[in-house]
Design a protein around this nucleic acid. Structure first.
Lengths: 348, 348
DNA sequence: TTGTAGGCGTTATCAA
DNA sequence: TTGATAACGCCTACAA
């Protein structure tokens, strides 16, 4: 086994001490011009790279951020992650990603809890959580306890999470603006029979959106028919199934708001398959404004949650905190906005 | 600042030496039952977790694999990554993901090369590369040189890469079977005017697929009209643009094979927007078999590249290598297969 | 079965 | 400006 090349290797060949090589590497102290040059040469000769593990151990910091989410494969989460990675890298940090996929959002918190431990062992400097159990309105007590303890070990940023009274940063989107715009729009198109599909009752984005929709409709004196809330998960398949249920009803809604774009795409899929014309016979809207909305015809009208802005804010908030630039602004709201496309038209 | 809890903290309180605690932790040597118990208690009391960084430094291994790819957000890549993460975790490894997004596939190799350095500094035990410059048929010499050097530092697994004569493992999908099936199918539907859209000429998956399509058509004595190869990138937008070009031609093809599902979805989008019925007036097929194909109507007929199998094989191959279970099978072929859905029908 | 001591590759403190 | 030297937290001979 070839011996590793270390600062000692470099130091020896350059005729200096390891400390000097280290200083050269970090640039935190001056080193004589001639030695500089020699060190530089040897480093290039060996194509030497400092060992980040050793560096981390010594520095007591890894310059890496843990990021826990359900599934990068979902366009919204994926977009957030990618932007987070980009911004982090730009600021000199890297991201350790964990997908908790297998967890059942409503019950089993094991995967996520294991991941938290796992990620802490890796000594991340900060932890970012998006989706999963932090969205759960009835959080399991042991999970709550764990996440509370967490808060003392490492700074935490939650994206669109729901847990109250937790000492962490919250980056959340204010759905209200976007939803009001959406409801205004639908009402202006004469819709009064509006459904809401996808998502679990116990999950925050679901209930929050549903409530705001109801409030928003109430401004027009329009009631929400509970039969038209179809509970399911957040997948394309959920959209397909839920729309099918809706279409089998005697009293159909004229417009369907979906808990996210994936569900909207699924809903559109079923409508088309069952010969229901969108938007002529049925209007459909989504949430998130992911690229999916522009994949289908008609393109889907949606509420933009600004995933990139969420990501950027989350990373910047975390790094500011880590670098001592404290704020006491623990909560940051990102505005949402309606994006008009082709999937809604006048009710008939 | 609170002092960190280390094996010494535990050792002291348990009245044993740090070595014993370490042995308890690794389980690699026996430790007396009564001490076992005491150690265990203290560990729980403090909620102690071993510091992975220190462990890695000592072990000279990180149990993490670097994974370099262009963009997790693309469904195919995302699927591969997710499965890779799952399998790796199951085998006790974690994955450090890097998205090279910003690189221009054809020219600038900087982002990817920087990432390689970056990832090596983190002392990953192995490196997996999928997409990006390894697909480039005219690889930049300095990139080749770099990647060759790489090969001496860390085991390398390439997924569907093209670089020949490199000492690494290759997991690649054999497109031939799937493409032959696709061509057989299209010909059986009376298609003779078949286009191919998306992808760059200089990129392996593009050319490989195109060549095989041509060969496959040749079996039927059908020629390929070069005008119907529209070069573009691999995005939904590419599909939209390319289809538009195709539809503006006087002599239109009756079927379009797309370099991947995203392009296929884009192509379908344009066809529908321009009032061309799919599949009645135009058949469309894709590659990859991602979930996108089932989002749209008609659902898209595609060649399944088995992303999960690619991922699993890649990870298993890597870990087998790392754990000394060497094989000399440096190349593993994953079969592809045609998946029939609704986007193709008889030519007219 | 247990403890001592040295090493993993860097950084940082303290003299010089 | 430089060089010893002691951390950082864990693992593993080696000796007991």
């Amino acid at each position: 086994m070839k011996k590793n090349i270390t600062i000692y290797t470099i130091a020896e060949e350059a005729g200096v001490s390891a400390a000097t090589v280290s200083r050269f590497l970090t640039g935190k102290a001056k080193v004589n011009e001639s030695k500089r040059k020699r060190i530089d040469e040897i480093i290039k000769k060996y194509n030497y790279r400092p060992n980040a593990i050793a560096r981390n151990l010594s520095n007591q910091a890894t310059k890496t951020l843990g990021f826990i989410m359900p599934d990068v494969t979902a366009p919204f989460y994926g977009t957030v992650f990618l932007e987070a990675e980009r911004v982090a890298l730009e600021m000199g940090y890297s991201i350790l990603l964990c997908n908790t996929m297998n967890d059942n959002v409503l019950t089993n918190t094991n995967v996520e809890m294991n991941y938290i431990d796992f990620i802490l062992e890796k000594q991340v400097d900060g932890l970012i959580i998006m989706g999963g159990h932090i969205d759960n309105l009835r959080t399991a007590p042991e999970y709550l306890e764990r996440i509370n303890a967490l808060t003392n070990q490492v700074p935490l940023v939650m994206i669109n999470g729901e847990i109250r009274g937790l000492d962490c940063y919250n980056i959340r989107s204010d759905s209200k603006v976007g939803i009001n715009q959406l409801v205004d729009y639908l009402v202006s198109l004469n819709h009064e029979k509006i459904a809401f599909i996808g998502g679990y009752m116990d999950i925050q984005p679901t209930m929050r959106r549903l409530e705001i929709i109801q409030e928003s409709l109430a401004r027009y004196g329009i009631g929400f028919n509970d039969k038209w809330f179809i509970e399911d998960d957040f997948s394309v398949q959920a959209g397909k199934d839920s729309m099918e249920k809706l279409l089998k009803m005697n009293d159909r809604p004229t417009a369907v708001i979906c808990v996210n774009d994936m569900v909207a795409v699924g809903a559109l899929h079923t409508a088309m398959k069952m010969g229901v014309k969108v938007p002529e016979e049925m209007s459909i809207a989504g949430f998130d404004n992911t690229y999916l909305t522009e994949c289908v015809v008609p393109e889907i009208t949606t509420v933009d949650l600004q995933p990139k802005k969420l990501a950027k804010t989350a990373i910047e908030t975390m790094i500011k905190h880590l670098e001592g630039d404290m704020t006491d602004k623990k909560e940051i709201i990102i505005k949402t906005q309606l994006v008009l496309r082709d999937s809604c038209s006048i009710a008939r």
